[in-house]
Each structure stands twice: as structure tokens, then as C-alpha cells.
Computed example of a mutant assay.
Amino acid sequence: MIRFGVVLITEGCSKTEWTDKCRRAEDLGFDVVAVPDHLNLLAPFPCAVLAAEATTRPKIGTYVLNTSFYHSALLARDVATTRQLVGDRLELGLGSGYVRAEFEKAGIPFGTAASRADRLESVVKELHATLGETMPPLMIGGHGDRILRLAAQRAQTVSFTGAPYRREYGRTALVDADALAERVAFVRAAAGGRTPELNLLPKATIVTRDRRAGLAGLRRYAPDLTAEQLLEVPTLLAGTPAQLAEQVLRDSERYGFAYYTVIEAAMEDFGQIIQRLR
């Protein structure tokens, strides 16, 4: 059984607007309602608690907390409090942070990819030590060796962005299907005897009768991939609901993805896929 999650955007939301979004996600069949963590959005933990109050079935996740923004002891308190209020529905997603402007606004050194990975490793270790058996299921996402190795060895769920930072573009860009398969193989090797759940975050979902034309409009996410490569990459979804459902099943079988997460903008379209797969 494949799980499906949606990251809901909290910017400018009233309480009513937020709870309506959460209930709509539940009605569409999503298994996880997740909250993001960016400075322009509402704080994640209050939104997570409210999402749990507004719904009955979905898990409630953070996708993902920027660990550089938190003192470990205070983060442990927030996680423990949220789990006490939400119960076993809470799933904790952690990341190393990637938006330089947010670090600058917060007055926190952006550092290097290595220093941010150091921070993530430290936070994971301290959370486990502090929370012990009350630690909620952990998800860690990324693309590079160090973050994926940490996820493979310490998290219940490994999330693949399939989009490393590309200096020539000044942003992230998607890799092709073979490169993503290599990342999955890396995680399986690093996990040893563990079998973490594998999660994928598609960049975009477009319902269209002309799959090639739909993918051509998404080229900005992968400017150096050919048209044929775009048709194969799992991180872009374009086609009819039936085609998209087939793609999800095919990629789940090839890579082992058991959990898909989409951004709110794709929620309604992806809901059509969920209906075909249930």
C-alpha cells in the first residue's frame, strides 16, 4: 500500500482557512497532512496541532523542519508537547535548511553544506537521547551522500528530493531517472540491515492529455534533461489521471517508493491519482 501526503502552505491563513485545507486533504484521501517550515509561513507546531484537531484519519507531519533554526533542547520540548497533544499521529520530518536568505533574516550563519549536515546529525542524536521511546517516527530528506546516509541509518523514512543544488543555475535542479536510482541504491547499501520507508517529493503534477507538452512546460525544473529523460524522471508528473496512476505504480516498483508527498498546488490533481490507486 502506497501512502500519500500533502504539504499545505500556511502563509496568510486564518484558522478557518487552515482547517478547511486540512479537511479537504483528508477528503481527497491523503494519508499525511504536513506543515512546512519557512520564515514567511506560520509556525509549524501550532499548525500541526490544529491540523490534528481538524481531521481524524491522516498522520500529521513536518516537511521539513530546518534544524539550524532550533536549539536542540527547545526543539525536543516542542516535539514532546506536540506528540502529547497529537498522539501517535505525529511524524517528524527534519532537514538541514537550504534557503540562504532565511538564514540571513534569522541572523544565523548559513555556513556550508557540511556544517549544516553537522547540525542535523547533532540534532537527531540529541532528540533521540532526550525523547527516547517517545520520539515520533523520523523522516530525513535530501540528495547528497551525507544526509542520505544519516537518513538510511537513523530515520524511519528517507525522503528523496532528486534535486541537488546546481551552482550553474544558482538553485536546485532535477536529476534523471538513472541518477535517482543510484541515490536509492546508495541508501539501501548505507542502511545495512534496516529497511526504511522510501518517500518521493515530486516537483510538479499536471493533469493533461498531452504528456509531452505538459512536461515541456516543466523544463525549468530540469533544464539540462532531454525530452525523453523528462518522460522518465519520477519527480515530474504529467499526463491523464490514468497515466499518472500508472507512473506512480511503475516508479514505486522500480525504486521502492512507498510514500509520495506533493505540494499543496498539486493537491486537487493528485487527489484524482489517489482515487485510482485505492
Results as ranks from 00 to 15, higher is better:
K203V: 00
A204F: 11
A204L: 04
T205S: 08
T205N: 07
T205C: 15
I206A: 04
V207A: 06
V207N: 06
V207Y: 06
V207F: 05
T208I: 13
T208L: 10
T208E: 06
R209V: 10
R209C: 01
D210K: 08
D210S: 08
R211G: 02
R211E: 09
R212L: 03
R212W: 00
R212T: 08
A213M: 07
G214D: 02
G214H: 03
L215V: 04
L215D: 05
L215G: 11
L215M: 08
A216G: 06
A216C: 01
L218Q: 14
L218A: 04
R219K: 15
R219L: 04
R220A: 10
R220K: 14
R220F: 02
A222W: 08
A222H: 08
A222Q: 03
P223M: 13
L225K: 02
L225N: 04
T226I: 09
A227L: 11
A227M: 13
E228Y: 08
E228I: 10
E228V: 08
E228T: 12
E228N: 11
E228A: 14
Q229V: 04
Q229S: 05
Q229Y: 14
L230R: 10
L230E: 09
L231G: 07
L231E: 15
E232L: 15
E232P: 00
E232A: 15
V233A: 13
V233T: 15
V233R: 13
V233C: 12
P234H: 06
P234R: 06
T235Q: 14
L236E: 05
L236H: 01
L236P: 00
L236A: 09
L236M: 12
L237P: 00
A238T: 13
A238V: 10
A238I: 10
A238C: 10
A238D: 13
G239F: 07
G239H: 12
T240C: 04
T240E: 01
P241Y: 12
P241K: 09
P241N: 10
A242D: 15
A242I: 15
A242R: 13
A242F: 13
L244G: 03
L244A: 05
L244R: 02
L244F: 01
L244N: 04
A245I: 14
V248P: 00
L249Y: 04
L249K: 13
L249M: 10
R250Y: 04
D251P: 00
D251M: 01
S252M: 05
R254F: 06
R254L: 12
R254M: 03
Y255K: 10
Y255D: 07
Y255A: 13
Y255L: 14
G256Y: 13
G256I: 08
F257K: 09
F257L: 13
F257V: 11
A258I: 00
A258R: 15
A258W: 00
A258T: 15
A258Q: 15
Y259S: 06
Y259E: 04
Y259I: 07
Y260L: 09
T261S: 09
T261F: 12
V262L: 11
V262C: 12
V262E: 03
V262Q: 11
I263T: 02
I263S: 02
I263H: 04
I263M: 08
E264T: 07
E264M: 08
A265L: 06
A265R: 12
A266Q: 07
A266V: 01
M267P: 05
M267C: 05
E268C: 02
E268K: 09
D269L: 03
F270W: 08
F270P: 00
F270E: 04
